[in-house]
């Protein structure tokens, strides 16, 4: 089955960020296809590379990044939600005249149309949030 997954909450703040990661991993292990993972609301914070949790804790952003590399996943951060919360890729940072970017490898920034397209193209859309 082909899935699009929407992640609406931030890492550490809310378990749904972990649950979404576990769901995607389990779906891939069962041979399903992940068409896209779309990060919205505070979920965009799953895509920062500037995060240093305590050493004995998981690094959720890195786990997404690793999973993306391993399975060639399409991880999309919503640009409107990202701009509000200070998530920038290099191109967007430059366009906005800012001095830094912070997106971790494996994620890309794009528009809400990517979420709707995911809904149209996939057999199931699964939302993880509060």
């Amino acid at each position: 089955m082909k899935f699009t997954v929407m992640v609406n909450e931030g890492p550490y703040q809310h378990q749904s960020a972990d649950t979404a990661l576990h769901f995607v991993r389990a779906a891939l292990e069962k041979g399903h296809e992940i068409f896209r993972v779309f990060f919205y609301h505070d979920g965009v914070n799953n895509g920062t590379r500037i995060a240093v949790p305590p050493k004995d804790d998981r690094l959720i952003q890195q786990e997404w990044s690793n999973l993306a590399k391993e399975h060639d996943l399409d991880l999309v951060i919503c640009i409107a939600a990202a701009q509000r919360r200070g998530l920038m890729d290099a191109a967007e940072s430059k366009r906005q005249g800012l001095d830094a970017d912070n997106i971790i490898e494996g994620f890309r920034i794009s528009g809400l149309g990517q979420l709707i397209e995911g809904g149209i193209q996939s057999d199931r859309t699964v939302v993880f949030g509060d």
Binding site: Y40, H41, L112, G113, L115
Partner: peptide, 19 residues
């Protein structure tokens, strides 16, 4: 919370997809 506002933003973008 920002959920309502950002939900409305999705609805407005989605309208272009003629669903």
């Amino acid at each position: 919370t920002v959920y309502a506002l950002e939900s409305l933003e999705v609805v407005l973008i989605a309208a272009a997809f003629e669903q």
